[in-house]
Simulated scan of single mutants.
Amino acid sequence: MHDTIPVAEIMIEDVVTVSPDATATEAATLLRDERVSSVVVVRDGEPVGIVTEGDFVAHLCDRTDLGRLEVRELMSTPLTTIESTASIVDAVELCRSADVEHLPVVSSDDTDDTADLSGIVTTIELSYYVPQLAHRAAESRERPPRRQVRTDTLYERDDWEFEYRGEDETTVSVGDVARFAKTISEDDVEAFAEVTGDTNRVHLDAAYAAETRFGERIVHGVLANGLISAALARLPGLTIYLSQESSFRAPLSIGEHATAVCEIAEDLGRAKYRIETTVTDGDGTVVLEGDAVVLVDDLPPMAAREGDATPAR
């Protein structure tokens, strides 16, 4: 669960640094020799800027005297940093909001106002835990009108909720959204454990779970992920899973009303689509997010005929 993992656990501690009065050539040599993508600029032990490979490329296009410049003229400042105690979820959000790929990690000293450099974390390290970071679109999409469509499911239950937003109820297209929600009960968790064999006590034993970092029993992560499959089943056509990348950002408590949201983000051609997937709890906290790739086939002839005779739900 990523909101319980501090940045300090995944950061690179051996940070390559350079002084502000070093030359660009010296900084570039460090990048090459140390095989890193950035150097942190440090003055009197405190990080004040950063120079990345991208900075060198940008300046190289405009300057012929790049090698003789001092690093202070190239570095990005003010520097965006993150506390070592912050979670990796916080780091992901900071990378997105600040539009950066390198986050120096600092530890504050209570005796003064300085922040000591502890390490560095980049989108590469974060992508091991949050793989969809590379795919996340920065811009928000205009939502198509809400529309209820016929689904290719055998049955529905009264305590399940689902909806589909799309321009055309017979096909899928970029921007369409499917949602599925249900309360995950204790019976659900116990049945999942029995069927799969995943009898980890953190899901089944209240006394045991109380002594873990979660403080209570939690839903299996893969069970929460199954809600995404349920939402995808409510897209028009026959939806076939090809792949799924998921990052578990927070625990899901038993008894929570969980909602899976699947938004078609990219048409990959040949009836394949990349879909951004999210599961939230009853308070709207994101417990899981990721990307899926699906193949959407036409419905079998029998299902298509039944659809013509059955009112849309």
Score class of each variant (00 low, 15 high):
100 V>L: 04
169 E>T: 05
170 T>R: 14
132 Q>N: 06
154 L>S: 09
115 A>R: 14
201 R>Q: 14
98 A>R: 13
195 V>Y: 10
99 D>R: 13
224 A>V: 15
176 D>L: 06
193 A>P: 06
209 A>M: 06
104 P>C: 03
180 F>C: 03
153 T>R: 11
103 L>G: 03
146 R>N: 06
101 E>R: 10
229 S>T: 15
100 V>I: 07
157 R>F: 08
171 T>Y: 04
233 A>W: 03
212 T>D: 07
224 A>H: 03
112 D>P: 00
111 T>A: 13
224 A>S: 15
227 L>C: 11
221 G>R: 05
228 I>S: 09
201 R>I: 04
188 D>F: 04
209 A>Y: 05
103 L>S: 04
231 A>F: 08
151 T>S: 10
146 R>Q: 12
174 V>N: 10
203 H>S: 04
141 R>N: 08
186 E>T: 12
128 Y>H: 08
135 H>I: 03
105 V>N: 01
220 H>L: 05
108 S>R: 11
207 A>E: 14
104 P>F: 00
149 V>I: 15
189 V>E: 05
123 T>Q: 14
100 V>E: 03
113 D>F: 06
153 T>G: 02
119 G>N: 05
214 F>M: 06
179 R>C: 13
133 L>M: 11
213 R>K: 15
107 S>E: 14
231 A>L: 10
151 T>G: 06
105 V>R: 01
206 A>R: 07
182 K>R: 15
174 V>Y: 08
215 G>D: 09
137 A>V: 12
175 G>N: 14
139 E>K: 12
207 A>S: 13
125 E>G: 05
161 E>K: 07
152 D>P: 01
174 V>H: 09
221 G>Q: 07
106 V>H: 01
167 E>Y: 01
194 E>A: 15
200 N>S: 14
155 Y>A: 12
112 D>E: 02
228 I>Q: 11
184 I>T: 13
197 G>E: 11
144 P>G: 04
150 R>E: 00
132 Q>S: 08
175 G>I: 13
173 S>H: 09
124 I>K: 11
190 E>V: 10
102 H>E: 02
117 L>W: 00
150 R>W: 15
98 A>G: 05
145 P>W: 01
138 A>C: 06
175 G>D: 12
130 V>T: 07
229 S>G: 15
202 V>D: 06
217 R>M: 13
141 R>M: 08
